[in-house]
Design a protein around this nucleic acid. Structure first.
Length: 586
RNA sequence: GCACCCGUAGCUCAGCUGGAUAGAGUGUUGCCCUCCGAAGGCAAAGGUCGCAGGUUCGAAUCCUGCCGGGUGCGCCA
């Protein structure tokens, strides 16, 4: 049950009645009106801008429309009071019974509460992480990984048909370097002294097991061969093992992709998706041989004019046209990406989302151009950029350098602070704002740490329920039984306040999903937790407000119902974000 | 030089795609533990929403121009 949709329905039916009665012109569109919660609580539970929105269309004064609307809205049984305020706002206050009934509705919906269907099963592709398979994941990947995963979860919850995807860059020069590095480790595994790892290769000792594995599988068969002979074998093996490692890193963060898409597979098994995609673009007259202008502000002496295959991305708002082929004729990385996104569209996705790191910002326009061209603008394509994460330890920045070996991997972070804090903290900030991540603060158990605060609220709710069952042997704390409790006992302003907050959950999911902003959910959960903790604390000063009411099973059951509803919202919300909702804190 | 992102309380940040007197946490100040978990709670103080114009009933939000900070900028991936 979505209260906003409900209220908007009431408003619309009143407006249509006004049209039928000739108060409002019959031919004006009333679909644009909205109900919202006023910022100032004294203004009531809901406000609508209907009168102001319609004033111009109807050729009437906002106040006149509002006055008439007020009369009609007051007829609804749920509504206690309606006021006209300011330039023509309509403020509505609902009866306590309406809010009390919400608790029952939430419990009845259970895990389904909040699952608004704004997605209508739209086939949606969320591509995230896509780290190069040349080593373990580092902290830089962490944020995009968590963000993409939470966004995918959010969209799923909101009714989209989501595929989580990872694009493996296994076709470029980098993986050849990986293979050469692994080959050295292979010779090392056979007893050879390989000395220093040469510049340009990957020196990390995570490749030692790869060398061992190659030695175990092939013995010395690859040893005296030419690179051309061993390269395909070693490369394939190295990539395979790197991806095993990366999947483990992701699993540590509770991230599991549905599809791992190999760049190399674009041109394998007798097909060539890159060529297909480019032919498609050629057919639209968007591919040509040309020379790119020298970028300004770059006094690059090495600059040479070169004729190459270009994509007319300027047609779609890009700054310059982009290279599809290198001067030696082979495809650029961008060409591969065109092929991959062509394939996404071929697979029927109409809604594409890519999560980029801040270092790929310059890539956005060309990607959008490519997708717009391939789909004739029919596909919705959003690119979310995650800004950098700065690591701190007790206020001091953590310096990282590959050379000095002070390289913080994703696994290091997860093992030190735990999966839940990492996930929640990465989401407790807008994705396009830089993020400071302090090891000390994230593990701290205080209100300063939102992860703890939200999880604690859930644990506290579970704890109260446990205690209540101790206090009242006859109490049935199942959600069915609680839903049947006498909810009219929930009259305290703090209780109503909490329920109102729970009632906004579906609308919040809707907005966050539409905007592709999971952080809204994280902030919302903090507020819900805060409301529950506050109400709890009031029981300290005023014993009659305690959740477990001495000698009053009925009151206790009613409050447990409210708490169970709160618990449901927190657990669903955390679930969407991929964070555990514990029944007890350690 | 160009493009993109950011600029909101002392500090870290929200602000629900244009709504009413701009909100949290932290820090400061003052209260509150015999009591369901004080790992907290309540209250006060704290603002030219970077600056200047524009759009309209109405702007932190949209448009333009500046100022300040960050990132990126031909064949790499």
């Amino acid at each position: 049950m979505n209260v906003f949709a409900h209220v908007e329905g009431l408003i619309r039916s009143s407006l249509s009645a006004m049209q039928a009665d000739g108060v409002l012109p019959a031919d004006i569109d009333i679909s644009g009106i909205e109900a919202e919660t006023p910022r100032d609580k004294t203004h009531g539970d809901f406000a609508t801008n209907a009168a102001m929105v319609l004033a111009k269309k109807a050729g009437m004064k906002p106040r006149d429309i509002a006055d008439e609307l007020k009369v009609r809205m007051e007829r609804f049984a749920d509504i206690e009071k309606v006021d006209v305020a300011g330039p023509g706002f309509l403020n509505m206050k609902f009866k306590p019974e309406f809010w009390q009934a919400m608790v029952g509705a939430i419990l009845e919906a259970g895990e389904l509460y909040g699952r608004v269907d704004v997605g209508h099963g739209t086939k949606t592709n969320v591509e995230y992480v896509s780290a190069n398979p040349t080593g373990p994941m580092h902290v830089g990947h962490c944020r995009g990984a968590v963000f993409g995963d939470a966004l995918a979860g959010l969209l799923k919850f909101a009714g989209y048909d989501v595929s989580r995807e990872y694009y493996i860059n296994d076709a470029g020069g980098q993986v050849d370097m990986l293979a050469r590095s692994a080959y050295l480790r292979y010779r090392e595994a056979l007893g050879e002294d390989i000395g220093e790892i040469p510049e340009g290769l990957y020196p990390g000792d995570y490749l030692v097991p790869v060398g061992d594995a190659l030695a175990a599988e092939f013995g010395d068969k690859l040893k005296e061969r030419d690179e051309a002979d061993w390269m395909p074998v070693v490369r394939a093996k190295a990539i395979e093992l790197m991806m095993v490692m990366i999947r483990e890193d992701l699993a540590a963060l509770n991230i599991h992709h549905d599809v791992f898409f190999s760049e190399a597979s674009l041109q394998a098994n007798g097909r060539d998706l890159i060529k297909e995609a480019i032919d498609e673009l050629k057919g639209k007259g968007l591919i040509y041989e040309g020379v790119l202008p020298k970028p300004k502000g770059h006094d690059d002496e090495e600059w040479e004019e070169r004729e190459q295959l270009l994509f007319r991305s300027t047609e779609f708002g890009d700054d310059v046209d982009r290279a599809i082929a290198k001067s030696d004729g082979s495809y650029t990385y961008f060409a591969g990406d065109i092929g991959y996104h062509y394939d996404k569209l071929q697979r029927g996705f109409t809604h594409l989302i890519n999560v980029f790191g801040a270092d790929h910002i310059g890539y956005i326009k060309r990607m959008k151009s490519a997708v717009a061209a391939l789909s004739d603008g029919m596909a919705e394509f959003d690119i979310k950029v995650c800004q950098l994460v700065k690591l701190y330890r007790g206020g001091e920045p953590v310096r990282m350098s590959k050379r000095a070996g002070t390289f913080v991997t994703l696994r290091d972070v997860v093992e030190e602070v735990g999966r839940d804090p990492v996930r929640f903290m990465m989401l407790y900030r807008k994705n396009d704002a830089p993020l400071d991540f302090d090891f000390a603060k994230v593990t701290e158990q205080s209100k300063d740490n939102p992860v703890f605060y939200v999880q604690y609220a859930h644990a506290r709710a579970a704890s109260v329920t446990r205690n209540a069952k101790e206090a009242f042997a006859e109490l049935d704390a199942s959600s069915d039984a609680l839903g049947g409790a006498d909810l009219s006992k929930l009259t305290d302003p703090g209780e109503i306040e909490l329920i109102k907050m729970l009632a906004t959950f579906p609308r919040l999911i809707e907005g966050a999903a539409r905007a592709h902003e999971p952080h809204r959910l994280a902030f919302y959960l903090y507020e819900v937790a805060n409301a529950l903790h506050s109400q709890w604390a009031r029981g300290n000063d005023s014993p009659h407000l305690r959740f477990i009411a001495q000698g009053d099973v009925g009151m206790t059951a009613a409050r447990l119902a409210m708490i169970a509803a709160t618990q449901q919202v927190i657990s669903s919300g955390l679930g969407v974000l991929g964070v555990e909702a514990p029944d007890a804190m350690r």
